[in-house]
Design a protein around this nucleic acid. Structure first.
Lengths: 230, 230
DNA sequence: GGCGATTGTCATATATTTGTAATATTTGTT
DNA sequence: AACAAATATTACAAATATATGACAATCGCC
């Protein structure tokens, strides 16, 4: 498992998908492709750091897809870039109105796409602490995202990957409740199918290792878990 | 003091500054202007939600200014948009490389500028606000949707899932009456069939937990329940 | 391929929520 | 005030949800 940004490219012109995939992978991104909005909407979109949508596609246009994505609380935060041949001002305005973060009209150069993708990811990352590589913490508990290290008052705590990922998620959104499904889609890769109860077990393990801070991971019965700051 | 986003426009063509100022203020932004990078750099840039920089300016170009801004930890997070007549791919790439979040080349339409500004602010805001979940409330009673938390004057009230969902429904439509059937279809899953009387029982429980605010959940005989603001 | 660490599953124990039914109270109407 | 209809309350049982320990499967690494 690596930490490259994951991008989903959705375009019904398979050649264009491949060209983008090829070039963006050179830049160090992980690219998945879908050849229709329908196909894309069946995927777990929360796993991506960015969606690149073609506007003109079969039954569901890129605009329509963006609206669907933005209406789903699970996905609404994922940045969206439109790629399109349409180049009137109205189209662009419409694109932004359905929630685009950027809008690139064809013919576009690959370099333009790359720098715009990077700029968007840079901003998205700098604002969501979780990816910034900075320290996240609460009182004497802190985690270092880049070093994958967990400390309690200068003592290092050995967490496994899953434990660390769960703590990272909860700690970087203190107070926010995450359902088991949400945690599964954010932390587990989608090829893997595991039971809800797996979360419970990992939470138990995490709590045990966190000692006194274990109490801060609280159960919202019927909803999920959160890290509570008291 | 209001809460409009504050934007600084830096351009040595005073007319262009004024045009932007005029149009963006119509959209509800607070605009300050500076006619050179030197002038802008003497201001407290941290107060702004966005910097709009012309690339071609006197002694210090927009690019140079962006580099200076980005190098200062106090300002580095402020989003930057370049406005420019330069329109070669290299210029654009350079703009992004010095830390731009967007790059708009002249001739640009005011509408394009406006939607791009909005998109950028939307993203910048959505990420910083994302942890302080949606709050709904009445007087000292408030609920946090993301945290699934209920507070009365800084005291947390422990509600069960059904109680919380009922309160959320009533509180987010204050004054509106919901029939038992409506509440059943909104809060209970389709597969489950429960008696109308179940609602009554849950309402009773909720009222008890809400203490003084229990009185605000009132019964419309023959119709249902609502949260009354008195 | 084998070893140790990690991770998932299951079985079981425990805790909490929720629905129902029986009973009491309120409300609107006459 | 009396009555019927609607709602409130209470207690209990059933249904759900979670916690945890033990074991099995899997992964990563040499």
């Amino acid at each position: 498992m690596n930490n490259n940004p994951k991008i989903l490219v959705v375009d019904d012109e398979e050649d264009l998908c491949e060209i983008l995939k090829f070039n963006l992978e050179i830049e160090g991104f992980d690219i998945d492709t879908a050849y229709s909005a329908e196909e894309a909407l069946e995927m777990n979109l929360a796993q991506y750091d960015l969606l690149m949508l073609d506007v003109m596609m079969g039954d569901i246009s890129g605009y329509k897809m963006a609206q669907i994505v933005r209406a789903n609380p699970k996905y609404e935060h994922v940045p969206i870039i439109f790629l399109t041949a349409k180049d009137t001002e109205n189209d662009m305005v419409h694109g932004f109105n359905v929630g685009a973060d950027d809008y690139i009209s064809k013919p576009y150069s690959i370099r333009e796409v790359i720098v715009r993708v990077k700029a968007l990811l840079r901003r998205a990352a700098s604002n969501s602490k979780s990816d910034s590589g900075e320290l996240i913490g609460y009182k004497t508990l802190s985690i270092d995202i880049k070093k994958k290290k967990t400390m309690i008052a200068n003592e290092e705590i050995q967490l496994t990957k899953k434990e660390f990922e769960i703590l990272k998620l909860l700690l970087s959104h203190q107070g926010q409740v995450f359902s088991r499904d949400e945690m599964l889609s954010r932390i587990w890769t989608d090829e893997v199918y595991v039971l809800d109860r797996t979360i419970d077990v990992n939470i138990t393990r995490l709590r045990k290792k966190l000692g006194p801070y274990g109490k801060n991971i609280i159960t919202r019965l019927g909803y999920g878990y959160c890290f509570e700051t008291n």
